[in-house]
Simulated scan of single mutants.
Amino acid sequence: MSMIEFKLNGKPVAFDGNPLKRLLDVIRDDFGITGTKEGCGEGECGACSVLKDGKLVTSCIIPVGAVGGCEIITIEGLRDTPQGKCLVESFAEGGAVQCGFCIPGMVMAAEALLMNNPHPTEADIRLAISGNICRCTGYDLIVESILLASKKGEGLW
């Protein structure tokens, strides 16, 4: 067992356990933060996406031991920021939310994109969300919602 300290949604936390435990399981089971979902368990669907030091990662394939000293942001941590509020409102306004299972990961992918490119093209957005699978809404409404967020959130990113 090992003590792993990191920031989770801006707060210092410590996990005392197996450093090979998946970050996804630590976030959900040990810290009770459930917006991050498990879809495939293989890093292919994006439902478990979080930001690790500002970079989009799939938490289902990262051992918690790899995040010592890092900043992890989940959908819960993002949604209360001005950028997160803008993204969530834009997804709702654009009709990009149906079952909601993939949306936390899509929003995290959008945030990662807009942090680096606040004025993306449709092609930029499609590339940025290409690691996220949506089975309900379809990608056009998601792309349109991210374009809307980039316009509404002028100056946030």
Rank of each mutant, 00 (worst) to 15 (best):
G153E: 02
I33E: 11
I142Y: 05
M3L: 14
N132P: 07
E42R: 15
G65L: 13
K151A: 06
E38N: 13
D16Y: 09
R135W: 08
K85S: 03
E93F: 11
S90F: 06
L24Y: 12
L24P: 13
E89Y: 10
Q98G: 08
E154H: 08
K37F: 11
L141R: 15
E89K: 12
M108L: 09
L148W: 04
D53L: 13
V67R: 01
P19W: 04
S49I: 08
G131K: 00
M3T: 15
G68F: 01
L147Y: 03
T58Y: 15
C40A: 13
L147M: 06
E44P: 07
A47S: 14
C86Y: 04
V143H: 00
G138P: 08
E122L: 00
I62A: 14
I75A: 10
A128V: 03
A112E: 01
G95W: 13
D25G: 11
E42C: 13
Q98V: 11
G54V: 10
E111Y: 04
E71L: 10
G131N: 01
D53V: 14
S145L: 01
N18G: 12
M106H: 04
E42T: 15
G105L: 09
S49T: 14
A92T: 15
V107C: 00
A47E: 05
D16P: 02
E93G: 12
I72S: 03
A109V: 06
A110R: 00
I146F: 00
L87Y: 06
D25A: 13
I146H: 00
T58K: 15
A128N: 04
G17K: 05
K55W: 12
C134H: 07
L56C: 14
N132A: 04
E42Q: 15
E5T: 15
F101G: 00
V97A: 06
G46W: 10
E154G: 06
